[in-house]
């Protein structure tokens, strides 16, 4: 597994833990309410698991197993490093909005970062998806 994929997969496992932890606290609070403010963590719970775990894992694994170019190259890795960086920046931007009562415009920033990550990853992976 290349270094980049190992980073992405490890990060995704950390997000799985974070997302499960936040989710468990929210579920427990639903049973016996102890912290009404905990619902502010719902966007973070969703972003941690959907973007942090599922999407980041998919990017990491895809970078590892998609067909390589001639000579064994996986293409421009900097694009995927950029995608991973922007994705994580986007996740934390979105997650901090409700937690710190940031203005709603930050949601646009967060989604733009995540969207740019998708463009970077797609542009790198596109050429590797081809008939064998």
């Amino acid at each position: 597994m290349p270094r980049l994929s190992a980073w992405a997969v490890r990060l995704s496992l950390l997000y799985l833990l974070l997302g499960f932890t936040v989710g468990a606290i929210m579920l427990a609070n639903k049973g016996i309410p102890f912290a009404p403010w905990i619902w502010r963590l719902l966007p973070a719970h969703i972003d941690f698991l959907l973007f942090g775990f599922v999407i980041q894992l998919a990017i990491g694994i895809a970078h590892w197993i998609l067909p390589r170019y001639q000579g064994g190259s996986r293409g421009k890795e900097t694009l995927v490093w950029g995608a991973i960086s922007l994705l994580n920046l986007g996740i934390w931007t979105v997650s901090c909005i409700s937690l710190f009562n940031l203005p709603g415009q930050w949601l646009v920033v967060g989604r733009l970062l995540e969207g740019t990550a998708a463009v970077l990853f797609a542009s790198q992976a596109w050429g590797r998806i081809r008939p064998s």
Partner: peptide, 14 residues
């Protein structure tokens, strides 16, 4: 308490 039990079980599973 079922919800709390569920939260703990899933969290430990993760």
């Amino acid at each position: 308490w079922l919800l709390i039990l569920s939260a703990i079980l899933q969290w430990m599973g993760g």
